[in-house]
Amino acid sequence: MEFLGITLPSYGWPTIAGSAISGVFLGSIYALVALGLTLIYGVLHIINFAHGALLMLAMYAVYFLWSTFGIDPYLAMLIVVPGGFFFGYGLQRFVIGKASHGRDEIILLVTLGVSIVIENAALFFFSATERSVRVPYDLDGIDLGVTWAVYPELAALGGSFLITLALWVFMSRTDTGKAIRAVAKERQGAQLMGINVEHIFAVTFGIGVACVAAAASLLVPTYAVHPQIGSLFVLIAFTVVVLGGMGSFVGALVGGFLIGITEQLGRLYLGESLGVITISVIFILVLLFRPTGLFGAKS
């Protein structure tokens, strides 16, 4: 097969299908990380550079709950999700909100500063050593014919759908959700209606971090934890958010799957190291030609 003058290796359908399916599983992980990010962008119009660092922090929390108290990583969600919410609430209310004077570029730089502090604090306290959680069922799974899926992968896939659904229900059915949407649409109008905008901003950021904490629980059984793990995901998460349309949950889910599948097929055809360039290329093309993404509102 030839493509742009480059001779690509040819594979049988089972190989391609197997690669695409593993791309779906990888994509569900990308979607999980991107969901919180897209919520924060949709409401606060913040590009949260600290998102990856917060994911890494939550993964450490899950790891230490397992290694110290023997808590199963999935059960740890009951602790890290509320913990993530309060941490995110405080971070937005007392650090990012206060330091940024409401200017977009400054917010970007403040979240960058936050991520540098968190990443290096992790390096300082936990060292660069990789740590992994071992659960008894992490190698069991089911046979999908063309590939094999382990239970943690299936849990991540299910989790990505559940969290998307939960976010959608929360945003459309609850009073807080409605207040968040009101603030996202018309900040000043919402304030005049008696909504505490500062509080809603912090709540939104808190929910975004809670999402990333849930993602951390689902990731830990398959990914080793180290201080740089967040930066591995952060650029991909941005790509997913921009591709799906900033602020769209369904977009994040679909975007996650598209990126996951593209990356796996890219690796199959272009090789392990060059394959990941497909992500940067998609990112650049979407930014240039369709910055509102697939499901984003026209601006």
């Binding site: 403040v110 540098i116 604090a121």
Partner: peptide, 17 residues
């Protein structure tokens, strides 16, 4: 490692604020 960058990050945020 890490102490100096933690401090730089904090200084960055304080200066921006």
């Amino acid at each position: 490692p890490g102490v100096d960058l933690i401090l730089f990050g904090i200084i960055l945020i304080l200066v921006l604020a």
